[in-house]
Amino acid sequence: MIWEVFRQEKTGGYHAHCGNVHAPDREMAKQFAAIQHGRRKPTNSLWVVPREEIGEIDTEDVAFGGTTDKSYRWATAYNTTGEDAVEVVESEDEQATAERQRGDD
């Protein structure tokens, strides 16, 4: 049975997919994953998930984010007056980055 492994590098971070292990059950999968995926890279926590439980939908199935203009849902579409709150500016920057990344695909 194949288990997909997700690693969190440090407390508070996100678990990101880092590989997989073959194991007969969850207990063994955790033990194997600890060695195989937690040994070298900084690790605070690992998740193991049965591969067969994972559903996938990809760009062949759906156009993520749509294909028509959705700029109305981005902060970058709006001009404001005067100085914006720092958290608004941060949000807009994050959105601008995400927009650029989408465009790069």
């Binding site: 849902r73 709006y78 404001t80 994050e94 959105q95 995400a98």
Partner: peptide, 26 residues
């Protein structure tokens, strides 16, 4: 941690709301 993670995404999206709100005000 799960609350903080939720806030990451909420803050990411919320800038649009505030700016759109300000645009309506303007």
């Amino acid at each position: 941690e799960p609350y903080a993670h939720a806030m990451d995404k909420v803050c990411f999206e919320e800038g649009f709301h505030v700016k759109h709100g300000e645009d309506i005000l303007k």
